[in-house]
């Protein structure tokens, strides 16, 4: 798998868009894989008791999907340094989350780039934020 080189990047470069189908399997699988057994992320009854329609995605999974969106573009030699996200509308089963991102900043000193990203579902932005990564 080839990696994006720092020298090839420009401010404003768009990352390839991803469409992530949000299923019960992804929500529950992501919650358990992250050791987050809070009931609202795997038990529909508990989620409904909390006022939601169905189980909803936990933050670790959201973080992980943001990381994946960026490293799918950047490749194996990138090092993620920082993930800063703002949470918005919940991700519930049946949604499609569209991930978009662009290169916001480049820092020659440490060959890092800051990617600004958003993951949007039908109710608005599920997540917005930035990921800082060092590139070869």
């Amino acid at each position: 798998m080839s990696s994006v080189q720092y020298a090839e990047t420009n401010v404003g470069d768009a990352l390839p868009e991803q469409k992530i189908e949000v299923t019960s399997s992804l929500i529950v699988g992501g919650a358990l894989a992250s050791q987050d057994f809070t009931p609202v992320h795997h038990d529909r009854g508990a989620a409904q008791a909390s006022g939601m329609q169905d189980v909803f995605m936990n933050i670790l999974t959201t973080n992980g999907l943001c990381e994946r969106f960026v490293t799918d573009w950047a490749g194996s030699d990138a090092q993620v340094r920082k993930v800063a996200i703002k949470l918005g509308t919940p991700n519930t089963p049946g949604e499609t989350m569209t991930m978009t991102g662009t290169v916001l900043e480049r820092n020659d000193a440490d060959k890092t780039v800051v990617v600004e990203l958003a993951g949007k579902n039908t109710w608005g932005n599920h997540v917005t934020g930035t990921i800082t990564l060092a590139l070869p």
Partner: peptide, 16 residues
């Protein structure tokens, strides 16, 4: 994966 960071310390089933 870096975003797994917190997963290493969460207590799992105990949370439920």
């Amino acid at each position: 994966p870096p975003t797994m960071l917190q997963a290493w310390i969460l207590p799992g089933m105990e949370m439920a």
